[in-house]
Computed example of a mutant assay.
Amino acid sequence: MAEEQKVLTVNIVTPSGIVYDHHATLLVVPAMAGQLGIMANHEPIITPLEIGEIRVKRTDDPAREDAIAVNGGFMEVSHNVASIVADSAERARDIDITRAQSAKERAQNAIKTASEHNDTDELRRAQIALQRAINRINVKNHLL
C-alpha cells in the first residue's frame, strides 16, 4: 500500500499573477460557511471565499505561519493541491500599514457621505472597501 502524502501545495493566484506558492501541513481559509482547515489528503472540495485571512503552516519551518489577506474568490482542493483564485491577495509582509489605514479612513468618510445622501449603492461599495482595509490591517498586525 502506498504511503499517504503529508504535504499540501498551496497556490494563490490573482488577476495580477501568482501571490503565493508553498508547501504546507495546514491551510486555513475564510470560506463562506466559516473558517475551513485543510490538510494533506483532504477530499476534493470547491468553496467560495470571503474577505479574510488565509493562514498557511509551512513544511519548511514548522514554527512559521504565513498570513495572506484575500478579498474574496474561491478555492479548489484536489490531489494535495489547494488552488486559490482570489480577486486580490497580499502577503502580510507586503502590506503597507499606512496605506491600509488611509484606505480605512477614506472608506469611513465614504460611508458617512453615502449615508447622508441615502445612496445605497455607494454605501455598499464603501462598506466593502472598509472590510478590505480592516482585513489588511488585521493581517499585517497578526504578523507583528
Rank of each mutant, 00 (worst) to 15 (best):
E43H: 14
A63N: 15
E43K: 15
G52Y: 04
A40W: 05
D61R: 05
H42P: 06
G52L: 05
D66Y: 03
A67Y: 03
E65Y: 00
F74G: 02
D60L: 06
P48R: 15
E50M: 14
G73M: 02
E53D: 12
V70N: 00
V56E: 05
E65H: 02
D61G: 00
E43G: 09
E50G: 08
I68F: 00
E50F: 02
D61L: 08
M75Y: 01
I51P: 09
G37V: 04
V56M: 07
E43V: 15
I46S: 12
L49K: 09
I38C: 13
R58C: 08
M75W: 01
I46T: 14
P44K: 07
I51D: 15
E53M: 14
R64G: 13
G37H: 13
E53G: 04
G37E: 14
F74E: 00
N41C: 10
F74A: 00
G37D: 09
D66H: 01
A67L: 06
E53Y: 04
T59R: 09
F74Q: 04
I46G: 12
P48S: 09
E53V: 01
I68P: 00
P44G: 04
I45W: 09
E65C: 03
M75H: 00
E50C: 07
P48A: 13
I54P: 00
D60S: 13
G37I: 09
A63E: 15
R64P: 09
I51V: 14
T59Y: 05
V70A: 02
T47E: 08
K57D: 14
D60I: 07
I68T: 02
A63P: 04
N71A: 14
I45L: 15
L49Q: 10
I54A: 08
T59W: 02
L36M: 15
R55H: 03
L49C: 08
I45S: 12
P62G: 05
A67M: 10
P48H: 10
R64W: 06
G52P: 02
H42R: 12
M75N: 01
K57N: 10
R55V: 07
G37N: 08
N41T: 11
R55T: 14
G37P: 10
K57L: 08
L36V: 09
P44V: 07
I45G: 12
L49Y: 05
P62Q: 01
R55C: 10
A69C: 01
P48Y: 10
V70I: 15
E65I: 15
D66P: 01
I38K: 12
K57Y: 14
E43P: 07
A63L: 13
F74H: 02
R64Y: 11
A40D: 03
I38E: 11
Q35N: 13
I68Q: 03
A69Y: 00
F74D: 02
M75F: 10
A67D: 00
P62M: 06
M75R: 04
I51H: 09
K57W: 09
I68N: 04
D66T: 01
E43T: 15
D60T: 11
P44S: 11
D61Q: 12
M75G: 00
E53L: 02
A40G: 06
L36A: 01
N41A: 08
